[in-house]
C-alpha cells in the first residue's frame, strides 16, 4: 500500500523562534490585534510504500528522527493517510 505522509516540523519548546517573534511583532502594525503564539516551522510531504498504516507510521517516524528533524532543536508531528483514502489497517 502507498500512504501519503505529512510531517510538520516545529522548534521545540524553549528554543528561540526569531522568525515567529518577528511576524508576531509586525502584526499589530498591520491591524491584526490579538494574534499571539506565532511559531514558524516547515512541512514535508511524501508518499511511502508500506505493509499497513502502522508500518508506514513507524518508518516515517524513524525518518523524522534520523533525518527530517534535528532532535536538538526540533519536534515533528506526523499524519499518515492511505493514498486511496482507505485505511490500511481496515483494508
Amino acid at each position: 500500500m502507498i500512504y501519503d505522509v505529512l510531517v510538520e516540523v516545529r522548534l521545540r519548546a524553549g528554543i528561540a523562534d526569531p522568525a515567529g517573534a518577528t511576524i508576531e511583532r509586525a502584526l499589530p502594525s498591520l491591524g491584526y490585534d490579538g494574534v499571539a503564539a506565532v511559531t514558524v516551522g516547515k512541512t514535508v510531504r511524501f508518499t511511502i510504500e508500506a505493509r499497513d498504516e502502522v508500518d508506514a507510521k513507524i518508518r516515517s517516524e524513524e525518518l523524522c528522527v534520523s533525518f527530517l528533524t534535528n532532535p536538538v532543536i526540533e519536534d515533528a508531528t506526523l499524519s499518515v493517510t492511505p493514498v486511496d483514502g482507505v485505511s490500511g489497517l481496515d483494508a
Partner: peptide, 17 residues
C-alpha cells in the same frame, strides 16, 4: 559536525534574522 554528531548542540537562525 553537529548534524553528524561529532559535536553537541545545533546552529539555528541568527537572533536578529
Amino acid at each position: 559536525l553537529t548534524e553528524v554528531g561529532l559535536l553537541p548542540g545545533a546552529l539555528q537562525k541568527n537572533q536578529g534574522l
